[in-house]
Design a binder for these strands. Sequence first.
DNA 1: GTGATTGATTGATCAGTATCAAATCCCTCT
DNA 2: AGAGGGATTTGATACTGATCAATCAATCAC
Lengths: 227, 227
Amino acid sequence: MNSSLKLSNRDRAVLMKAPFLAGLGNSALVRLMSMMTISTLPARKFVMREGETADAFYCVLNGYVRLFRLSREGREADIMVCAPGDTFAEHLLFSDNVYLCNAQTAEPATLARFDMQAVRDLAQQDPEIAKALISAISRHLVGTMDCIANDRLFTAPQRVANYILSRCPVDGGSASIRLPFQKSLLAGMLGLAPEALSRAFSSLRRVGVTVRGRIIQVGDVQALKNI
Amino acid sequence: MNSSLKLSNRDRAVLMKAPFLAGLGNSALVRLMSMMTISTLPARKFVMREGETADAFYCVLNGYVRLFRLSREGREADIMVCAPGDTFAEHLLFSDNVYLCNAQTAEPATLARFDMQAVRDLAQQDPEIAKALISAISRHLVGTMDCIANDRLFTAPQRVANYILSRCPVDGGSASIRLPFQKSLLAGMLGLAPEALSRAFSSLRRVGVTVRGRIIQVGDVQALKNI
DNA sequence: GTGATTGATTGATCAGTATCAAATCCCTCT
DNA sequence: AGAGGGATTTGATACTGATCAATCAATCAC
């Protein structure tokens, strides 16, 4: 785990566009960024573990981070996958003081680390930062509520179709997208075993979805919506 | 829908102990409560509908409210059930301006209604109120993340056992609890069809769980934990 | 290039839960 | 207390997705 204070230009751009920081004025931004640490992590590295004291939260600058819980027998259930620009664990600022799930990089990743106590203090003084926190946490809540509804309403092929549609340019007749990560990660996001994702893709062939490697081609976006 | 400004003593007590308001100082409390409306609703009454403009959020004072989404074919999926003291839709304050799910009373209920715009203004000025919002939304996020993990890790009998345990006085050898609502509501909360809940209960008989009406008796709390 | 490793697909089987229908229970109202 | 009606349970069946095993594909190291 390589830790530094330096930000690459690309990482800085992601950070500034992150929902959590995007709306902030200059002074708030400077104060937050001055207490921030950058670290570069290898794939499969744990960032936090369920039960540990929650003394920091994070913003993903590059790569993907998987949040998950473990059952007693060691089975894993993904709760959320964080993409560049996403923060995680920031909702523990004013509530629990231990992490409630594990976080692991899905691939080599760069993260910004924010000290809980420091941000807590800032948020108390600066309403702009408080508002940024509310927005970030609200966004997560919307995401998790969506996730519950999707899990409960839709079958595997439908969830996969929804995912594809969510990344498609709006109603082109046909479209082509590239998965930004491994299929096994997508499977976890959708609450599926990798085998089930694979079968879901192949069942979508009959509505014109073709998959080769990470490239997904959609013949007719509109047709996919009716699945 | 009977709407008034008066609060019964019981409802007032619930309101003051609600996580959203509990930590607040007097002036913030007065300002919030002055803009609040109380309404008494019959069972099965819609409080909000997916897609409608989100111009208020609510706090349950009495009864239970079910938040759910509909599929195109009209199937319902519960996302969250709100008990007395819970707020809902407050996370739309600084993000979306339409409701993202439906809310329906599960039985006759009393709700406090807060105007979004008014609270938004208050939250901008008063850091105490902003903090209360962060806490309330965080609490919901924790709940929904728990829900996803539970759905994905555990079978129906395990989820039912978890629910029972969550309402049991901590490690008594035996315990007896009373469901505060209909079983069909519990089924929805756990992402189950009512039949599946029923079968889950009966499969728990072999670990000493007895159900009659709304009364659930647990022979050995510890044994239930190992399911 | 060639083996070695990791990731993805496919097949076979099984467990868990939804669905539909029918019977029964429980609660409320009079 | 008794009747009525909604809620719950039970049974039979079908379906979805998990799991295990084997194969195939792609990537990496040397």
